[in-house]
């Protein structure tokens, strides 16, 4: 049984890259097959997931991470409500990760980076949430329990990174793996569903690696010899708004 899964999984993986989609491929993609077994035990504080983003490797004009995130979480299915201007829609549609371009005031140098929820150890959004819907999972992922979120948006007021989005419109199309609907707040959850299925990477990091840029290193902050800790050791890095002492899970090099 297990064997079956693995072969199917590998088949699916291999086919991902293939452009031609025949009947065989459709079987591989078919919706019922979830490649790995899901978690059976609750997450613990053994891991704390995080990222290092090397801005020097983040390429101009590349939006692979953003596109992958949208595809992963069904954000590409969002539809601008009829009668809403594009300008306003840009600021109302849900955005979990965005590409930011900065210019140094003195040197004029340009820096690029993807910006998403920073998964703080002491998240202001969690502190302010009246119902406790905004919470930090044991493995350090900050997310929203959208079954008790009342849509007050206080967390969005509190977030120093503009990482959260409020769903302003009824959601027609969504993926099974990423339920989402009007009236709640949502944000990057480090692809929790992937991690819970034993995968060790997020959609954005994977996409970045596939382009060959390798700007995003995803990993376990608690794992001293893991790739993330090694990367953090190797490159000088910092947190955005370090002054707030939030101990973010996402760190930036070359900023």
């Amino acid at each position: 049984m297990k064997q079956d899964h693995d072969t199917i999984d590998q088949g699916r993986r291999a086919l991902l890259g293939a452009a031609a989609v025949g009947a065989a491929a459709t079987v591989g993609f078919s919706s019922t097959i979830v490649s790995a077994e899901g978690r059976k035990t609750p997450v613990t504080a053994e891991h704390r997931w995080g990222m290092l983003i090397d801005t020097s490797k983040c390429a101009d004009g590349c939006t692979a991470c953003v596109d992958a995130c949208e595809l992963e979480n069904g954000l590409n299915l969002q539809e601008r409500p009829h009668g809403l201007s594009q300008q306003k829609w840009d600021d109302q549609r849900s955005t979990w990760i965005r590409k930011v371009r900065l210019q140094d005031n003195l040197s004029g140098q340009i820096t690029q980076l993807p910006l998403m929820c920073q998964h703080c150890e002491k998240p202001p959004c969690v502190d302010v949430c009246p119902t406790g819907a905004s919470f930090k999972r044991a493995d350090g992922i900050v997310m929203v329990d959208r079954h008790i979120c009342i849509g007050c948006r206080y967390c969005m007021m509190a977030c120093p990174y503009k990482a959260r989005s409020f769903i302003h419109e009824p959601v027609e199309h969504k993926f099974t793996r990423a339920p989402r609907g009007k009236g709640c707040v949502e944000s990057c959850n480090l692809c929790a569903h992937r991690l819970d299925h034993g995968e060790n990477n997020t959609a954005c990091a994977e996409a970045c690696a596939q382009t060959g840029h390798q700007a995003i290193t995803f990993g376990d902050l608690n794992h001293a010899n893991g790739k993330l800790r090694q990367a953090l050791k190797a490159t000088k890095n910092r947190q955005i708004r370090e002054d707030l002492k939030l101990n973010t899970g996402v760190r930036y090099a070359g900023l």
Partner: peptide
Amino acid sequence: PLEMFPGHRVLEFGAAGDVG
């Protein structure tokens, strides 16, 4: 705007209308 990057000017922040 939220002041996230002191000493820098924000040229782009997501989509055109996605203010930052």
